[in-house]
Nucleic acid binder design. Structure first.
Length: 857
RNA sequence: GGGUGAUUAGCUCAGUUGGCUAGAGCAUCUCGUUUACACCGAGAGGGUCGGGGGUUCGAGUCCCUCAUCACCCACCA
């Protein structure tokens, strides 16, 4: 079968992927190695289209997986999708809104079913996109985060924590979005800087002896104040401790307390304490045993615990009215402009209200402690390494984790409450029931669901079927967890903690954190800005391989970088180059392409290319094992293009060796396959004709020992040819150029090749002659350029001569430095000596040429 | 307030424990249709490696410091 002139990815990609799938090439299988290599892919939101960032995820994971598969390791790349609880529910709510409905029109069970159907409708996109990107993942092991095994695992984990008292139910401050009606973990709150006011309010002492001025950004919460705090060493106030304040606008009396937390320098040095609506105040209330009064409810309105005129007001509205009322009472001391950070719901932008709610919490201390110890002991290797330190710092300051969410789309919490005794909670997995009877008592199900991260923290072992499934026994701990920096804290940290807690082992041996794919101008991609790049049109235009390589090229771990279309184009050109190399070789070797394992090198070019290919196979493998993808790709790119195509194939046109051509292509196809799976497999299938061999499962190549001395001969030919090309280009000579020499064996031997590569008329042995001598090789030879033409080369000669002199000087100073000869490694000094010799020789040749031509001006 | 990363050619970026005259792609300029490829070939120009100190025989690379940008964490009301 003949390869057409241009590689058109669209014509082949689908068929090639189908071929891999049909051949079960993605199933893990030991092929000559005893090692396994396993990754579970970070599950993207099942409901959304994959954005270009996920192409990077796929590319990185798939390159590593394909490499290890070819190494013979049993390789598992497990695909999955995430129900993405709150994310998906808010998408669905927007969808509902279009039909004029809202979540309040349905109960939670109804909503759950509706969202399930909604997600099922959209899920196909995800599968197809992953295929289009060439992910060699095992679809038979596809896992959804609401699969039975994942839910059961969440329940077992919850139960174990419950039994071991790591789970507790408590009334704590939670970050509450009054629009979505749910609480969030600390990490989900988005802080934004806002212009606001700092109000100074006079709080009169009960005994009438004066007043204390407090400063606040949230005057509406004063109705819930239960104390005023000052610093114990503050001379202005310390005599007031123990006295009480008559809280304005209310009839309540509240104490003045002393606490080290208070910053004397901020505001007035006196701070109102509202335990039910501020985390720091909450902590202080616990220390001083203060009452907590909720004055804002879950809808963001003032509660019935505030004086009549303020009840049911919107918090924002209440603020204005209260400030006005204080003004009227002449209790407002002053207003200052003030800029501070305010927490917002990351989805709708509503200001987050800290509210007192009963929720389930996980005591993170013991889990974090174990994780820190494991990280410190380097049981998990991080790429880049700095992420480890960041993670340890995060774990050190970790607070308890609120795992309750008041939404429908998620895993119901398997806890039931005695309807007659609110403190009596039991664990039970019958979550499909609203209420159950146990020991004659009626228990009602907690209507909340788990935070998505609670179940996904078990992903590495739950998706492998912990504890009994063979996959778990075979592939755990995972070889690599590849993921983005934004989920280092919410996900990676928790996978490590829960992995250690449940399985007693680290969940993965290495972590690779990729940077974000930013928009081309470096800004963050977001739907609202409209600068999101959709991978599918890019794949259609340039091919899947081009996108994969283009997005990996020049990218290092943990660093954000813009999407660069030029790199994709370049990669497309690379795929086409490979295609045409294959066409050329197909033409020479014929259709029955079968590369010999040990081809016989004949020419110095043969030895040279084998040497290059040996370096390629060894080094690319080493790079991938160190997860240095960009450098690996770079080496593949330049070996194919510069070495194999531009030098070896060109040389082969005058000294063909079909065995080596076929062998070289074979090696290059294998080594390129992890990066460009489609084009390499397409070529492989076309050239192998009827054969049933697949490149994807072919072994990674190994080139045996090469005679490097012979390889070096070709380096000399390259140097000679390059110099001739340079001179030709500079003096604008094209035709009829001859190279003369006085009986150099080397030039006689390689004359035909040099003639061909340098595009000159002839190479001749002569007795004597006159012309421009070449300086880059240790042979006496010259181009038959006349005096006048050679003159135009004088400038070049001069600048090269100057450079050469500088180099000689630099090397001489270095060697004259006794500290250098004393301290530097011997090989390096030896190298410097050789270098100096060569530099001197080249210098004198340049000098001679320069003298001869300048003298005759 | 704390932390991390970035700052290298016109643009986008590589550059592993310090060691050949600092690299790539794109862009620019000059040639070129030669047994595959114009999504091509040959050649060229272009960099005080953000500033300033220091350690070292030797620093783009290590240390200190400053500046600018980005992100993350914290949240003193």
């Amino acid at each position: 079968m003949k390869l057409p002139k241009i590689y058109e990815p669209n014509l082949y990609e689908n068929d090639i992927y189908a071929l891999w799938e049909k051949s079960e090439a993605f199933a893990p299988k030991y092929r000559g190695s005893k090692n396994y290599y396993s990754q579970v892919m970070p599950p993207p939101n099942a409901n959304a289209n994959l954005h270009i960032g996920y192409t990077l995820v796929v590319a990185l994971e798939d390159i590593a997986a394909r490499y290890h598969r070819m190494k013979g390791d049993a390789t598992l790349l497990l695909p999955g999708a995430d129900h993405a609880g709150f994310e998906t529910q808010s998408v669905y709510e927007k969808h509902l809104a279009k039909t004029g409905k809202s979540r309040f029109d349905f109960n939670r069970d109804e909503l759950y079913q509706q969202i399930w159907d909604f997600v099922a409708l959209n899920r196909g996109n995800f599968d197809n996109q992953l295929r289009a990107m060439g992910a060699s993942c095992d679809w038979s092991r596809y896992t959804f985060t609401l699969d039975e095994k994942i839910i059961k695992r969440a329940y077992s984990t919850f139960k174990k924590m419950w039994d071991e008292k790591l789970i507790y139910r408590g009334e704590r401050l939670v970050n509450f979005c009054t629009f979505h009606g749910t609480g969030f973990a600390d990490i989900e709150v988005e802080y934004k800087e806002e212009q606001s006011k700092l109000w100074h309010i006079k709080y009169p002492l009960t005994d009438g002896s004066g007043e204390v001025v407090i400063a606040t950004t949230r005057p509406e919460t004063m109705l819930g104040d239960t104390a005023v705090a000052i610093h114990p060493k503050d001379g202005r106030y310390k005599q007031l401790v123990g006295k009480t304040i008559k809280l304005p606008l209310t009839q309540r009396e509240i104490p003045i307390i002393a606490d080290n937390f208070v910053d004397m320098k901020f505001g007035t040095g006196a701070v109102k304490i509202t335990p039910a609506h501020d985390p720091n105040d909450f902590d202080m209330a616990q220390r001083h045993d203060l009452p907590m009064i909720s004055v804002i409810d879950h809808e963001g309105k003032l509660t019935h615990d505030v004086p009549m005129p303020y009840r049911s007001l919107d918090a924002e509205q209440a603020r204005k009215i209260i400030v006005n009322d204080l003004k009227d009472l002449e209790l407002l001391d002053k207003e200052e402009d003030y800029t501070h950070n305010v927490g917002h719901c990351y989805k709708c932008g509503t200001v987050i209200q800290p509210l007192l709610r009963e929720q389930w919490f996980v005591d993170m201390q013991p889990l974090a402690k174990t994780a820190i110890a494991v990280l410190r002991a380097n049981k998990i290797i991080f790429h880049p390494t700095t992420k480890k330190t960041q993670l340890i710092n995060y774990l050190k300051g970790l607070k308890d984790w609120n795992i309750s969410r008041q939404i429908a789309w998620g895993i119901p919490i398997p806890a039931f409450q005695n309807i007659e005794d609110p403190d009596d909670w039991i664990f039970d997995e019958r979550v499909e029931e609203v209420s159950i009877e146990v020991n004659g008592k009626i228990y009602r199900r907690d209507s909340d669901v788990f935070d998505t991260w609670f179940s996904s923290s078990s992903w590495p072992y739950a998706s492998l079927g912990y504890p009994k499934e063979p996959d778990f026994k075979e592939f755990y701990p995972l070889s690599l967890m590849e993921t983005g920096g934004e989920i280092l804290y919410p996900w990676v940290s928790r996978m490590i903690m829960l992995g250690l807690y449940i399985t007693g082992e680290v969940p993965f041996k290495e972590v690779y954190i990729h940077g974000y794919v930013m928009a081309e101008n470096g800004a963050k991609m977001s739907k609202s800005t409209g600068n999101v790049v959709d991978p599918l049109p890019v794949i259609k235009q340039y091919g899947s391989d081009a996108l994969r390589m283009g997005i990996v090229a020049g990218r290092s771990p943990g660093v954000n970088r813009g999407y660069d279309q030029r790199k994709v184009e370049d990669a497309r050109n690379f795929a086409n180059k490979l295609w045409n190399v294959a066409r050329f070789i197909e033409d020479k070797v014929g259709d029955n392409f079968k590369a010999k394992t040990n081809p016989k090198p004949k020419t110095s070019a043969d030895y040279w290319i084998l040497y290059k290919l040996q370096h390629l196979t060894d080094q690319v493998g080493a790079y991938i094992e160190q997860y240095r993808f960009s450098e690996a790709y770079d080496l593949v790119y330049h070996t194919l293009w510069d070495d194999f195509a531009d030098w070896y194939i060109e040389a082969s046109k005058s000294q063909p060796n079909n065995e080596i051509l076929a062998y070289g292509l074979d090696i290059i196809l294998r080594v390129t396959h992890p990066f460009a799976p489609f084009v390499t497999e397409t070529i492989w299938q076309t050239l192998n004709g009827e054969g049933d061999s697949l490149l994807i499962t072919s072994p990674w190549p190994k080139v045996t020992d090469i005679d490097t001395q012979k390889a070096k001969e070709f380096e000399q030919i390259k140097a000679l040819v390059s110099e001739i090309r340079y001179i030709k280009g500079t003096v604008h000579l094209r035709d009829n150029l001859r190279l003369y020499h006085k009986g150099e064996v080397f030039l006689n031997q390689h004359g035909t090749l040099i003639k061909k590569l340098a595009q000159i008329e002839d190479i001749q042995e002569v007795r004597d002659g006159y012309g421009l001598h070449l300086t880059s090789v240790p042979f006496a030879c010259w181009l038959d350029i006349d005096q006048e033409t050679a003159h135009s080369f004088l400038e070049q000669l001069k600048s090269r001569l100057v450079d050469q002199k500088k180099l000689v000087e630099r090397l001489e100073t270095r060697l004259a430095n006794k500290a250098y000869t004393k301290n530097a490694p011997k090989e390096l000094i030896e190298e410097t000596r050789t270098q100096l010799e060569e530099a001197k020789e080249l210098g004198s040749k340049l000098y001679n040429e320069y003298e001869r031509f300048s003298g005759s001006t």
